[in-house]
């Protein structure tokens, strides 16, 4: 393998290490009493982990803009689904 290939492999292991560290942090944070902030901390860490997987493992970082647009499209409709449902339930 050339040096470019080694770079990619090193990056994959770096992301994997970051994911494991975030896993430890999220489990640890669940034992700290934060009240309503617990769910916020847990979701922020989950979004960071998911973004690392999508950006590096799923190659979005080297994808064309249109592929990134389609990837964001799924998330966009999910946000609409959850926000409109929440708007209904929170306004009752």
């Amino acid at each position: 393998m050339d040096s470019h290939a080694d770079h990619a492999v090193r990056r994959y292991f770096g992301i994997f290490a970051a994911l494991l560290v975030l896993l430890v942090i999220t489990v640890g944070a669940a034992y700290v009493h934060l009240g309503a902030a617990n769910i916020v901390v847990a979701l922020v860490i989950a979004v960071v982990k998911a973004s690392l997987v999508a950006w590096v493992f799923m190659h979005l970082r080297s994808s064309t803009p249109i592929v990134i647009l389609f990837a964001l499209g799924g998330v966009f409709w999910l946000v609409i689904l959850i926000l409109l449902t929440a708007a209904d339930f929170l306004a009752r």
Binding site: A30, Y31, N38, I39, A42, A50, V53, M58
Partner: peptide, 28 residues
Amino acid sequence: VEMFGLYWHFVDIVWIFLFPLLYLIDRS
């Protein structure tokens, strides 16, 4: 292989959200 990889990583991402929502509701 690469397109299958996208599917596998997606399933991983679903679990990344399921895990805190189901297992980690304030254990303090």
